[in-house]
């Protein structure tokens, strides 16, 4: 090969590299734009809500009951309702979801039947929430006669986020190196010991993330809660879960009527009086902040727990 042809070849290679670098650059720009569309939409929405609802941001907004006067109307019954429903959702979905996830990953035999279950669980995560509402209306409200209560709402939303928790648990467990399990078995651990002392511990961060993201989703759900008959005006709180007399616990609150944040927001938004639209905007901003905080906590916890894990 002559020197000239090598040089010519080199030029071609350089041109090619240049072209590929350009492609790289273009993709980075496209990716950035895609990211920005999502982010900016959320940001615009959020800023808009904050600007509209700004004048209602005060402690009274959280400590007042709903009222016909927009200025005095507050979120007390709605956020307490949301919180209590979330407690039931948490207590029902998390143990069940985590247990199901662990079973599917660690215990279930790998055959067509568990494949079928896997497909169905993933599929369930995509079922529209109104379907869960209708299911709950038939099952919890009418057949099991649990009434239009906090318990019903909590269980409904629990069902709704169950697939999310199961999938997150399985993903988290899959991230654990096989060597950890093998090492545990090698020193004579039983399956349950391996699962309880190693698998759950190491996957804790991932499971927690899934749980919190699921809870954040449940917090914003409106359709299934309306379907099972949540109230709109309720100006008292459910009975207290703790009492001064033994056994100090009271489960009456489970059967109490309730309303939740998104329903209160929706109701205010459909009012003729514009002053109520301000309340709705403030509520929307609050829901976004709480959801962001929950997701932020999930990321922070995952980071902290991952940092401490040293295989």
């Amino acid at each position: 090969m002559t020197q000239a042809s090598v040089l010519k070849n080199l030029d071609e290679v350089r041109a090619m590299i240049k072209r590929h670098k350009l492609n790289d650059y273009i993709f980075a720009i496209v990716g950035l734009i895609a990211l920005m569309i999502g982010l900016l939409t959320l940001l615009t929405l959020f800023i808009d809500l904050v600007m509209d609802g700004f004048e209602r941001f005060s402690l009274e907004f959280l400590t007042n009951y709903p009222s016909r006067r927009a200025v005095n109307a507050g979120l007390l019954s709605a956020w307490v309702g949301s919180l209590l429903v979330m407690v039931v959702t948490f207590l029902s979905a998390v143990p069940m979801g985590v247990a199901a996830g662990i079973y599917l990953e660690e215990y279930a035999p790998k055959n067509w039947f568990s494949d079928l279950i896997e497909i169905n669980v993933t599929n369930l995560a995509g079922v529209p929430s109104i379907v869960y509402g209708l299911l709950a209306l038939g099952l919890f409200v009418y057949i099991l006669d649990l009434g239009q209560s906090i318990l019903t709402a909590g269980l409904t939303l629990g069902l709704l986020i169950l697939p999310v928790v199961i999938v997150a648990t399985r993903e988290a467990i899959r991230g654990i190196p096989v060597a950890i399990r093998e090492a545990a078995y090698a020193v004579g651990a039983t399956k349950w010991q391996v699962v309880s002392q190693h698998v759950i511990h190491y996957s804790f961060g991932g499971i927690l993330t899934g749980v919190i993201i699921g809870m954040a989703r449940a917090l914003g759900e409106t359709a299934p809660v309306i379907t099972i008959g949540a109230l709109t005006f309720i100006a008292f709180l459910p009975p207290s879960p703790v009492t001064t007399e033994p056994p100090f616990l009271n489960f009456e609150w489970l059967s109490s009527g309730f309303t939740v944040l998104p329903i209160q927001m929706f109701n205010w938004l459909s009012r003729p009086d514009h002053a109520f639209h301000v309340n709705a905007a403030a509520t929307g901003a609050l829901i976004i902040v709480v959801t962001l905080l929950m997701n932020g906590t999930a990321i922070w916890l995952r980071y902290r727990i991952r940092k401490n894990i040293k295989w």
Binding site: V80, L83, L84, P238, P239, S240, P241, V242
Partner: peptide, 10 residues
């Protein structure tokens, strides 16, 4: 949660 609930009068 319990504290909040406790605020409500029975």
């Amino acid at each position: 949660t319990f504290l909040i609930g406790a605020c409500s009068k029975s």
